[in-house]
Design a protein around this nucleic acid. Structure first.
Lengths: 248, 248
DNA sequence: CCACCTCCTTGATCATTGTCATTAAGGCAT
DNA sequence: ATGCCTTAATGACAATGATCAAGGAGGTGG
């Protein structure tokens, strides 16, 4: 019994340890990044931890009532929006530390479904409490503004990609952007695993699956990358970056 | 002299009248829309009025330091971003009551130049003062969040348009969207003047100018619209809306 | 009022990428 | 392991929209 109790305590402590912002390895990237320890505790107190999502499970569905934004803790997700009877459209991929659901504030419903691409854990941040806390914590407020602003900026990049770049440039951009995001998160920028399918990539980039396949093949022949299934090895990042630029 | 004084006073009053949020015809659409009269006065106090921009003049240039967001009071503008040695990309058009510059918060520089398409007046809202005021006025804060969220949502729509819609659907979407925005602002949704060139439209929609011209011609033959130069008459809005949808 | 310059239109041709079809490979459950 | 079902690769063909070329319209300044 004492042993069990000790175990239970240990478990609880480790759980607690894992799930506090102060101890989170993402704290330098995530929403509370600008907060003092004391303030971070306040922020920490409004967070709701979720049990992990399994691959394919949805965090929320398009059209459901907006209540929270979510910070990705581990794993990855995609956002898909369905319009009319039309086909789904992948509008975003989310990696750890990124904020999901900000586009639901305006109309108080989520404009797309967000689905786990692998086993994924998120921190749920009830928006009304976040807003209220942001009243007292200017740094938090600023970070929230910055997060939204950054997403706007990224969207502009995406629009440029979709309206001006060739299929090759799109794929190159996709890989260099992923590489960069991994680098920022402390992972290898050269070697990673795609958590999304070719279909997801194509849909996101406005390309047919076949085109994605073909170009991946071409990139391999050119010695830019080495792709085996979903494992990616970037062999020549420079060249890939150059390729991604739409000025030549 | 007394006459002159009276004139001057009259001028000043009318200027004052015109330039206060309470009296602004856009107050039901603009940032302070949720504010009580008393709060609106506070908001009003931080606004800086700008002398009108002439056609082609820029509100700010890409890369210049971020300091303010701007609410369009009259006229219209376009945002263009230049990347590398690549061509310009039109990323947005702004109509009265819309907020310009929100994508500059994150990196503290404006990610694109914003240029008047006609004689245009804007209200300048210094961001630090806006942020500070938003601490005391939850409604203002909420409206700011909503504005950014709406822009994110609109961006998703644009991405969908760019990656999944045909040229015809893009043009149809463009017209129905404009129509709707004019309607909300109390103008005719059927008859309006385009302040942007065909080149701007094409660039924005990811199409060549020639394609824009051709499709406009086709729309006229089909009796959907009547276009003469930059004057637009929508003859069959229903059909145009149907055309804009990407499900058939 | 004319000339010039920009903006717009229209036609012909070409290229990129999508679609269709088929095969191969990989993952998961029985 | 075996087989099924999903995912990926590759080839042939077609289509949408870009590019190139040239002419017309409209507006602005001399």
């Amino acid at each position: 019994m004492p042993v069990n109790a000790a175990n239970a305590l240990g478990k609880r402590r480790s759980l607690l340890h894992e799930t506090r912002c102060q101890n989170c390895s993402l704290s330098s990237l995530c929403l509370p990044l600008a907060l003092e320890l004391e303030d971070m505790e306040q922020f920490d107190a409004i967070i709701r931890r979720r049990s992990p999502l399994k691959k394919g499970e949805s965090l929320f569905r398009q059209g459901s009532a907006f209540s929270s934004v979510f910070a990705v803790r581990s794993g990855s997700l995609k956002q898909i929006t369905t319009e009319g009877s039309g086909e789904d459209q992948v509008t975003n991929f989310y990696l750890p530390s990124e904020l999901v659901g900000l586009d639901g504030i305006d109309e108080q419903t989520y404009p797309g479904s967000v689905i786990a691409l692998e086993t994924t854990t998120v921190c749920e941040i009830p928006f009304d409490r976040l807003d209220h806390l942001s009243e007292q914590l200017p740094e938090l407020r600023g970070q929230l503004y910055r997060s939204m602003s950054k997403e706007l900026r990224d969207d502009r990049k995406m629009m440029r990609l979709l309206s001006r770049k060739t299929a090759d440039q799109r794929l190159a951009s996709f890989f260099t952007s992923l590489s960069d995001r991994f680098r920022r998160r402390g992972y290898s920028p050269y070697s990673f695993r795609l958590s999304m399918s070719r279909a997801d990539i194509g849909n996101y980039l406005g390309l047919a699956v076949e085109t994605v396949s073909r170009i991946l093949g071409r990139f391999q022949q050119q010695g830019l990358v080495e792709v085996s299934g979903r494992e990616v090895n970037i062999l020549n990042l420079e060249a890939l970056v150059a390729q991604a630029q739409d000025d030549h």
